[in-house]
């Protein structure tokens, strides 16, 4: 299982990095969305496999709901809690990113990363006039 999960993480991660380095902003947004899936699966891998193999015998771990396992053997709940938090956050971030793209499109009329470069560069600040009070 860990091996399979690692393959998934590797593939999704590679694809999302590929999309993130794209010039097209829509692809960047989708890349970021995929990115979160890879991260979540990476985290859940850290709770260990849902099975324990003990000298040929295989025992299944139960979900982290107390009282559901006669053996009292549960998977690690902490990664799940972290991922749950992360899923909801990535929803908010995705929404924000999409709004940013819409706003960007309306201002610059371009979905090309390279055309954003010279936008909104900060100016060198004014001189801080001496604070001496007469």
């Amino acid at each position: 299982m860990t091996v399979l999960l690692s393959i998934c993480v590797a593939v999704i991660f590679a694809v999302s990095v590929y999309l993130l380095t794209s010039r097209d902003l829509k692809s960047v947004a989708m890349g970021l969305f995929l990115f979160s899936h890879a991260a979540h699966m990476g985290i859940i891998a850290m709770s260990g496999q849902p099975l324990l193999s003990l000298g040929g015998e295989t025992v299944r771990k139960a979900s982290p709901i107390l009282g559901t396992s006669a053996l009292g053997l549960h998977v690690d709940p902490l990664p799940q809690a972290l991922i749950l938090t992360s899923i909801v956050i990535s929803f908010a971030v995705t929404g924000f990113l999409l709004a940013l793209l819409v706003a960007q499109h309306r201002r610059v009329r371009s979905m090309d990363v390279t055309e954003l470069r010279e936008e909104d560069r900060p100016e060198m600040p004014d001189d801080f006039a001496t604070a001496e009070a007469a």
Binding site: A10, V17, Q49
Partner: peptide, 24 residues
């Protein structure tokens, strides 16, 4: 881009593999 993405993917997958194995 493809090479870079593949490299990063491999690295992260490798970390996942080791982390999962350690947890087990």
């Amino acid at each position: 881009r493809v090479v870079f993405a593949a490299l990063v993917g491999l690295c992260v997958g490798w970390i996942t593999l080791h982390a999962g194995a350690a947890a087990d």
